[in-house]
Write a protein that binds this DNA or RNA. Sequence first.
DNA 1: TAGATTGTTAATCGATTAACAATC
DNA 2: TAGATTGTTAATCGATTAACAATC
Lengths: 216, 216
Amino acid sequence: MNKDSISRAVIKRLPRYYRYLGELMEDGIERISSNDLSQRMNVTASQIRQDLNNFGGFGQQGYGYNVEHLYQEIGRLLGVDKKHNMIIIGSGHLGQAIANYTNFERRGFVVTGMFDKNENLYGKEVRGIKILSMELLKDFIKKNDIEIAALTLPKTEAIKVAEELVSYGVKAIWNFAHVDLDLPREIVVENVHLSESLMMLSYNLTRQEDKKKGVM
Amino acid sequence: MNKDSISRAVIKRLPRYYRYLGELMEDGIERISSNDLSQRMNVTASQIRQDLNNFGGFGQQGYGYNVEHLYQEIGRLLGVDKKHNMIIIGSGHLGQAIANYTNFERRGFVVTGMFDKNENLYGKEVRGIKILSMELLKDFIKKNDIEIAALTLPKTEAIKVAEELVSYGVKAIWNFAHVDLDLPREIVVENVHLSESLMMLSYNLTRQEDKKKGVM
DNA sequence: TAGATTGTTAATCGATTAACAATC
DNA sequence: TAGATTGTTAATCGATTAACAATC
């Protein structure tokens, strides 16, 4: 009953299911069994059935899953059936990269404003989105029903700005700054720590090199 | 003995330990117990001790861990004590954002080349790094001892280019394209799927909204 | 020596996989 | 009805936490 109790491991897999189902739709495939899907995705069929059953019976015995139906159900779970207004705080290269990525908009995530503390950027437009002064932040959030803020600024400022955003009513923070945010429980925080990702790559690369040396 | 057997869960936590230890060093703290560190990092002391012991006894009974020593040991494990040459394939906004991020260089990840199939970009420089034609890729990789390639290009091209890179000797791929790469086992692949990250945020945001509605 | 804290074993918890009855 | 495949329970596996002996 309680949807909160679904494990993070399961939730993390949902976007990948969603992606594969979208591709199946593009290929004109109408139905698929957990077994077929498991082979395409390189996971077990059992895991797929377990995962999906956390959310209700999306399949049908003897038939499998209807691709379009399942795609839509997962989309609804992921909230991509609704529009979400997003702002970007920190309009450097990374902020601009996100503003330029139109695929997010296709999923309902609409960047409606960009901000920076560097006044040289004010008035500059990225894909039609004006970069504004941080002083306009409070007003902008209240007037434009902003739910999500992407934090693409140095970690020294991230904590302070995050608290500010929350006080203005932002509900979720997509945090690209290399710092842990400590915010009220009801605020959603999703971290993208690029340097940690690169270090994991480097860890595995180093192990591969160790292995090679061991063999020679 | 076999370092391959260390679980992904543990490895994923290493960069975060590394970050906290770096901050402790900046604060001039010389030693720390698993208990103190656990409170700062919001994990259990037991987990810290278990994690670190996968790699050997970095601590000392009755004393704790020497911050600088532990920092260096974890850095070595993560391979940030060595220089790694990296190229960026796809010189759009995201590729340029990565090229501009000097913190990677501080950790030994040096961007030595950028590539794109759009010839309008050729010759353009990003932080002194020239954007080159894809035709120069093979030669560049061989001549410049390139280990890592960041893939910041559309998913339609990612698979083909990844295979190309591997054939030229690239050892690790940092994949920002929204597609699963199927490469030989010895090739390290680290995925950064921004849209999946945003969907997880959206999932949690939607659950928060459900909760709120339930209460009202 | 007494106190502190690790390294490590044992207990618990949670997630994944296997198996199969239910049912389309 | 027979075959296919889900939904779901049970078994297994792995990761986290607790406990404590070893030792600095």
